[in-house]
Amino acid sequence: MSMKELEKKLRDRFGEGVIDFAIPRKNRLIIKVDASIVKEIAMFIKENGFDMPISAGATDYPKDKRFEVFWVIWSSIHNLVLILKTDIDRDNAEIDSLVEVWRGVQKFERETWELMGINYKGHPKLKPLLLPEDWDEGYPLRKDFSLSPYKV
């Protein structure tokens, strides 16, 4: 199955839900989707051979008041790296967890929850992982996190 076919299938199935579909270079695929249907799209993508999660995270864009949440999936069949992206509101940072789709994203989502403050709905184990036990200074990877040792 070529990527054109995949794009066609995706657009047929989800219509406006697929915002962007790009192949920036060899072995890369970037799909940007609507946040509300990210789980269904993930299921669909998994059925089409993208089976191995290799990364997940989020980028903070305070100017646009959004988080760009991404999952990176490798396909053992197509030998492709897929970056699945979606935008969510910065004030209400909630997104469906994809742990049910790809078991391996659990640790990445847990980490992003801790460092970026994104609430993954349906994640089985949102517990602190990297930061100290008594951490209460906010989310370090957000752009408004102050690196100064003097807290106001």
């Binding site: 290799i54 997940a56 980028t59």
Partner: peptide, 18 residues
């Protein structure tokens, strides 16, 4: 894996290391 986002400055905007 490293996901690097640049906004045109001399520092990366975001680096995600997995």
């Amino acid at each position: 894996g490293m996901y690097v986002v640049s906004d045109g400055k001399d520092k990366p905007y975001r680096v995600k290391i997995s």
